[in-house]
Simulated assay, not measured.
Amino acid sequence: MTQVDFARPDAAGIDEPVPSRYALKVGDIDVLVISDGVLPIPPATLATNAPAAELKAWLGDMYLPLESINWPLNVAVVRSGGRTVLVDSGLGTEFPGFPRAGQLAARLDAAGIDPASVTDVVLTHLHMDHIGGLLVEGLRGRLRTDLRVHLAAAEAEFWAAPDFSRTDMPAPVPDVLRRTASRFLDVYRGQLWPFEKEYEVAPGVVIRRTGGHTPGHSIIRLESGGDRLTFAGDAVFQCGFDKPDWHNGFDHEPEESARIRVRLLTEMAATGEQLVATHLPFPSVCHVADAGSGTFRFVPVVWDY
């Protein structure tokens, strides 16, 4: 199980005109953010409780189209203390309507990362765009048999009988989410390491349940040598900085999601730590600034070449 330098993989990789991975360090912890691609969603999904005119104005200010927007999908590979941790797994390839997503397997290969070197998987939650990659035969069959899959116990319990009554998703999505989560739990049940509130997966790598987006939604906090980074999963979306009270259509507990988002962004603005989130523009590595009046500012880091 060769350990490959994230910044200088041994594999020749794929010559891509647009980069799909970004390496950084958090103290002694190595982090590689990988783009799983993008998937189209209706803009209204970003703000189900906002007036249409306010959403339209925000989309215009961000130079985003009104009909359909591309939602980035970011995952991460983290190395600490001899363990290699995959954080979420993207969409997978079983959804033909999203041909530009589900790139994880190919991009692990391009980065020179052998799936058999992954010791742990950490899941923020069980929506299909976070677990689908682990169901792809081209990746699943290459994982080690003693792989540990960490998720909140509340998340596994929720998907036994999921409640979509407070979500606002396109019509076919709830059934697809339900089927995908059920299949995932059937496939990986024997490898699950559920936790209640938080669990240290590797030195300085802690998964912590927040709830909100789903009852067991979790974030991953990295801390080493005085440096900190949080992988926030779906706790923060692109509009969540200046419009933190907007409800996302995929939120199972919309009001709680907004409260969690404000608490998290307030904390990060105070500490100055780095943030990565699933649906922020790749590579999504940023700082959070307090913009006053309960709003925040996305401050992207300068790429370190």
Rank of each mutant, 00 (worst) to 15 (best):
M169T: 13
E155W: 00
P65M: 03
G60V: 01
I220F: 06
H279E: 05
P72I: 13
V78N: 13
R179D: 10
H252R: 14
T214I: 04
W303D: 12
A160G: 06
D186Q: 13
D61V: 08
L32C: 03
D290W: 07
V31K: 11
L126H: 08
F98E: 11
A153T: 04
G240I: 05
V38Y: 05
L151D: 05
A232V: 07
D234W: 02
V149W: 11
T84K: 01
A161I: 14
A53S: 15
Y188Q: 02
G212L: 01
L229A: 14
L32P: 04
D251F: 11
L91T: 01
D245W: 15
A277M: 13
D109C: 08
L91N: 00
M1D: 12
V38D: 07
V18P: 06
L143A: 10
V288E: 07
G211F: 00
G92Y: 03
H125P: 08
V118P: 01
P215A: 02
G27S: 08
G90K: 12
G132E: 09
P9Y: 05
A156H: 11
I219H: 01
P17A: 15
Y305F: 07
V206C: 05
Q274K: 11
P115E: 09
Q238V: 08
A57I: 03
V149C: 13
E94S: 13
A57V: 10
T180D: 07
P244W: 03
R221N: 14
L123D: 05
S224R: 12
V75A: 09
V136P: 03
G90N: 15
Q103K: 10
D175K: 10
L135Q: 02
H150V: 03
L73A: 05
I113K: 04
E198R: 07
R261L: 08
L185V: 11
E273C: 12
F296R: 01
V75E: 05
V299H: 05
K243Y: 15
G212I: 00
L86R: 02
A152M: 05
F241M: 02
M128E: 13
G240A: 14
I219C: 08
